[in-house]
Nucleic acid binder design. Structure first.
Lengths: 254, 254
DNA sequence: CAGTGGTCTAGACCACGCG
DNA sequence: GCGTGGTCTAGACCACTGG
């Protein structure tokens, strides 16, 4: 009994600043783990310490650690494999495909389409780019465009804008690969944690009609997506114009 | 000790058929609750018995009931209000808006747009309708079309198809209201539990160009949505053609 | 086999909503 | 005050994985 009381005292006195703004233990555990992910102390693919080790280190019960980890698994930041451990999520092909790429063939199958870079430049951000990417100073941006092919048919025309700040020497070595998120993660230690998409129907421009081999002004699906890192800062703004004759965007709700 | 052992024996012997295909207790609890929702024993808006009552009734611990309920809260079938209880989800305006209606103004605000019914008929299903709605016999279907307005501007043209089987006397009393899901729920006891959407860009037909007041062949966003009931059977097929000049479809991932 | 996550229990105490 | 869900603990046992 006395031991219990002492423990509670210790916990409360150990966090005196949080008496006004109460925070649960599992939230504190979550924040600690989140911070370690942001600081790359635990890298994508790494196994975390076991639940019992974490519980001991952070002086909480295993159940509290479980709750925190389960929350983060639900956020796709971690994944579990029974008998093996808890791991930091990576931007594998599968993850890219099911989390951040929603186009599927009319039969329902998804493929991560091949892509070809058309152009590349470093420049001052436009007003829209400055706002969208939440740039602070007049930081420069990287911008490139590419075509993506579904079964060798050009289907998507993409314009991608990145804050130069986070991507030094981008594109100087070699062409950026097909799976950009994995590239950001493995070369720059930047993990895309979430994204917001806005969809519209737009007419094909003259340039797009040539590239995608469709009539001018024919309808294209515009996917306007802002991707954010673990700490919430924007990392990539991507505008994709898609010929949805043979493919469509899918979403499940409920 | 002996009590514990006896209890375990009881549980196992109480479910002899499940020794080969093991199922966890919380899954069993989930299935029982799910079944009661399907059978309308607990109706939308009702409070469930308290966790302790359920635990006693089903002979499991409160923690097991918690896990089952939390899973179903994550599925949006139930919601919790601390201090009050656990409730069956309803198709309120808010729910309709945030779960099943993804159009937002370019400033980010969402509105459930007003609608006007254009026509209504009962007919034999087409081949596509038969397949999509997973009709078994040659059941008849109800079909109607409507315009939806955003700030008094016609913006969406919808074609809605329902299996007549589930909607006797549909439309004979009065016009179906704006929020259809709530109507299905309160008048027919049918809850829409999930939906699958496919999005494309399509050209405006001659008819649509008149209705939506846009040039013929101008790009429209097509939302092709199949809604399913609690037990997974299709209840509604809706094809919406949207003028996305002032509005767009939104999705958050991560 | 040892170590991991997954399930389940029993019980304590807290925070909230309502009468 | 009372009943509800929300947090937290401690410990048991199961199921899976790998060496």
């Amino acid at each position: 009994m006395t031991e219990k009381i002492t423990k509670l005292k210790l916990i409360k006195s150990g966090h005196p600043s949080q008496t006004t703004r109460p925070q649960t233990k599992y939230q504190r555990v979550e924040n600690i783990i989140r911070q370690r992910l942001i600081e790359n102390i635990w890298k994508p693919g790494d196994a975390l310490p076991s639940e019992i080790q974490l519980a001991t280190e952070l002086d909480v019960s295993q159940g509290t650690v479980r709750k925190a980890l389960n929350d983060m698994v639900a956020e796709n930041l971690l994944y579990r494999r029974q008998g093996l451990g808890t791991f930091v999520s990576q931007h594998t092909e599968r993850r890219a495909l099911f989390l951040y790429f929603s186009l599927a063939g009319n039969n329902g199958t998804r493929i991560l389409p091949e892509s070809k870079i058309l152009n590349f430049r470093e420049k001052e951000p436009s007003e829209a780019e400055f706002t969208k990417l939440e740039l602070m100073n007049r930081d420069r941006v990287i911008q490139f465009q590419r075509i993506r092919y579904y079964e060798d048919v050009p289907t998507i025309f993409e314009t991608i804008t990145l804050p130069l700040e986070h991507f030094p020497d981008f594109g100087s070595d070699s062409e950026p690969p097909n799976n950009l998120f994995r590239f950001y993660q493995s070369f720059y230690g930047i993990t895309v944690a979430k994204a917001e998409e806005q969809l519209r129907a737009v007419p094909a421009s003259h340039e797009e009609s040539n590239i995608l081999n469709v009539p001018e002004n024919s309808p294209l699906l515009e996917i306007n997506r802002l991707a954010r890192m673990l700490d919430g800062r924007p990392v990539e703004w991507r505008v994709s114009h898609c010929d949805t004759t043979n493919y469509h965007y899918i979403k499940e709700s409920g």
